[in-house]
């Protein structure tokens, strides 16, 4: 837990299409900079397709096939670093769909073992750590949980288990890409509370990707708004809600209010 600040500077992601004139690059993410600090929540918001997830993937260099990173660098406490060694050691991740993020042929304990292997601990110490991590996310009451297969668990339980794996890795930073999208409202609320408590109590640095401004209002210290591959507005969450400057931000806020506020 030594690292304090993880900063991505000028991340760009491109795809390409073949035309008669040759290869034509298409920029999907342009010059995105993000700063994660321990104990703080940074929310990355924007409409679908604005490049939020790609920017996160670029941070860890796990871009999908057909895209590649172009430019940008990642700094850990000010020192430039390769993205690959960050995975699982400095940055843990929680994916959007818990149902598919677990191998159906492997139990929760198997998945935890894999995480521990990356962290370099096994055996009895590892088993105790698994128990603690599951208890931390509220899955500690049932001793059967480690032996369960993913299809024997609910979506909310799986998302908790995924967060437990993230805790197990001991990484100081957590990237959560729309962690509540696939869950019902009750489970959503619980997961968000869990994430908030982890940031408060453990000093985790959280980057939460979402298009739900309700989530932002509930959790975020700082917000970055993306539109068409770039960050159009960034700043403290309170300021953004009080005084949105960019049309994109205003549109998102308006859409949110139209959806969630009962007309007077």
């Amino acid at each position: 837990m030594s690292a304090r600040v993880l900063r991505a500077e000028g991340l760009s992601v491109e795809s390409w299409r073949d035309t008669r004139a040759g290869r034509e690059a298409v920029l999907l993410v342009r010059d995105v900079s993000l700063e994660m600090r321990v104990g703080e929540v940074l929310a990355l918001v924007g409409a679908s397709g604005s490049g939020k997830s790609l920017a996160c993937a670029a941070l860890l260099d796990v871009l999908p096939p057909g895209t590649r990173r172009r430019g940008g660098r990642v700094l850990l406490d000010g020192a430039e670093t390769e993205p690959a060694p960050l995975r699982g050691r400095v940055v843990a991740s929680v994916l959007q769909a818990p149902r598919t993020a677990f191998n159906p042929l492997r139990t929760i304990a198997d998945h935890a073992g894999e995480t521990l292997a990356v962290a370099g601990s096994r055996g009895r110490v590892g088993r105790a750590a698994i128990g603690r991590a599951l208890a931390d996310v509220g899955l500690g009451d049932d001793p059967r949980v480690p032996g369960l297969y993913p299809f024997q668990m609910s979506g909310g339980m799986l998302q908790r288990a995924m967060i437990a794996l993230a805790l197990l890795s001991g990484a100081p930073f957590l990237v959560a890409d729309e962690p509540t999208t696939d869950l019902d409202l009750v489970a959503q609320g619980r997961i968000l509370d869990l994430l908030a408590s982890l940031v408060r109590e453990r000093g985790l640095g959280l980057l939460i990707v979402t298009h739900d401004l309700g989530v932002v209002a509930r959790l975020a210290d700082r917000v970055a708004v993306m539109e068409a591959g770039r960050i159009v507005e960034a700043g403290p969450a309170a300021a953004l809600f009080a005084d949105p400057r960019e049309p994109t931000t205003r549109a998102l806020l308006a859409a949110h209010r139209a959806l969630h506020e009962v007309p007077a």
Binding site: L60, V62, P85, R87, G88, R89, A92, S93, L95, A97, T100, A101, F102, N103, L105, R106, D110, E114, T115, A117, V118, M162, L165, S169
Partner: peptide, 26 residues
């Protein structure tokens, strides 16, 4: 292309471990 393979990659698992754990059983 399965999500759990991506999840393992993001979690920092080495390629050989991913092959043995998540690909070979399939």
């Amino acid at each position: 292309t399965r999500d759990y393979v991506l999840a393992a990659r993001i979690a920092g698992a080495p390629p050989l471990a991913i092959f043995a754990e998540h690909v070979l059983p399939g």
